[in-house]
């Protein structure tokens, strides 16, 4: 067990390094650099910057150096000094920027996760136990509708409806009076008032997927002979269900844990843009478009490491929950 964990962690090091290199290459793939992006952004509005200013900026940020030198500077800064560099666009340390947004991102992600599980778990069990019943069809149908509606459309429509007919402020996670306020009871309530829109938008897709997985796995389990044996022994249906089959069918929930955090952070980008959420998604996307490479690179690296850790944790959890899974 211990050697297994150690081996997995050991393998994470080269993968992480590879990711850091690829992340750096990916963000450099689009032509130009931050200065180009800045020029472009201004030119789009028919605004210009003096060429002298641009030259000075390019010089200061070291864009004229070869990519491998830039990469080396970046990665050694992270490895030896924990310094993720400074965001060009925000003129602030990357770590601070990401940290600022992480709290609310986690709140949104966690609320979505709870929403998805609370919905998917019972519906999934119901659908499996009452396979091909009307209830099953209806639940699956609505689940899939959630999956099929593109998030950005749903987000836009919900934002419109909530602001026009429910008097909510447009987008964001707080009303104007609480945006810059310290945490208080009122601010929590205000947050909850705004949270439901993104949670619904983000949760719909995941719910359908989990319902389907839960249903399929439970169906597989219910066909197994041990269930019949248990039934023959006179176990009540509820106990029978919860004792083993549900436990086994839970596996996919656990294994999704590994992916769920990064996908909620990056997969929510489109939704977060439409809803103007102060989460990390828009920061990442803007950094990519602005070619703010240290910010984008730091983000990708962080998300990737989160995924790696998440996978490891969920694999361990899985093994703990289901002893049949062996450490190979």
């Amino acid at each position: 067990m211990l050697t297994y964990i150690l081996r997995r962690i050991l393998f994470m090091v080269p993968v992480t390094l590879a990711i850091s290199l690829v992340a750096f290459i990916i963000i450099q793939l689009p032509p130009g650099d931050f200065i180009t992006a800045l020029t472009a952004q201004m030119a789009e509005n028919n605004e210009t910057l003096d060429p002298e200013t641009l030259a000075a900026l390019r010089d200061r940020y070291g864009f004229d150096q070869p990519m491998i030198v830039q990469y080396w500077k970046w990665i050694t800064g992270i490895v030896f000094r924990g310094d993720f560099g400074q965001s060009f666009e925000w003129s602030r340390p990357v770590a601070d920027l990401i940290w600022d947004r992480l709290g609310l991102t986690l709140i949104v992600s966690f609320a979505t996760l709870v929403f998805v599980w609370v919905l998917a778990f019972p519906i999934g069990i119901y659908s499996a136990v009452r396979q091909y019943s009307w209830g099953d069809y209806i639940a699956t149908f609505f689940g899939f509708i959630g999956l099929a509606v593109p998030n950005f459309l749903l987000a836009l429509v919900l934002m419109y409806l909530s602001s026009r007919y429910l008097g909510a402020s447009v987008g964001g996670l707080f009303s104007a009076e609480y945006v810059n306020a310290d945490w208080s009871w009122g601010r929590v309530v205000d947050l909850l008032n705004h949270l439901w829109v993104p949670v619904i938008v983000l949760g719909t897709g995941g719910t359908a997927a989990l319902i389907r997985i839960m249903r399929a796995n439970l169906l597989d389990e219910l066909k197994k002979p041990y269930v019949e044996l248990a039934r023959a022994r006179g176990l009540s249906e509820t106990r029978l269900l919860l004792k083993y089959p549900v436990r086994v069918a839970l596996n996919p929930f656990i294994s999704t844990l590994g992916w769920i955090l990064p996908t909620l952070v990056s997969g929510a980008v489109v939704t977060a843009i439409v809803l103007s959420l102060p989460t990390s998604g828009p920061l990442l996307l803007n950094a990519l478009f602005a070619q703010d490479m240290y910010l984008a690179g730091g983000f990708i690296l962080l998300l990737s490491i989160l995924t790696l850790i998440g996978t490891l944790v969920s694999d361990l959890l899985l093994a703990w929950l289901d002893p049949r899974i062996r450490y190979e």
Partner: peptide, 21 residues
């Protein structure tokens, strides 16, 4: 490892990088 690697890179940057190519 390759699979793990591909899965752990967030999709949007990957898309944008590849689209630029």
């Amino acid at each position: 490892r390759v699979i793990e690697f591909l899965k752990s890179i967030p999709t949007i940057p990957l898309w944008m990088g590849l689209a630029a190519a």
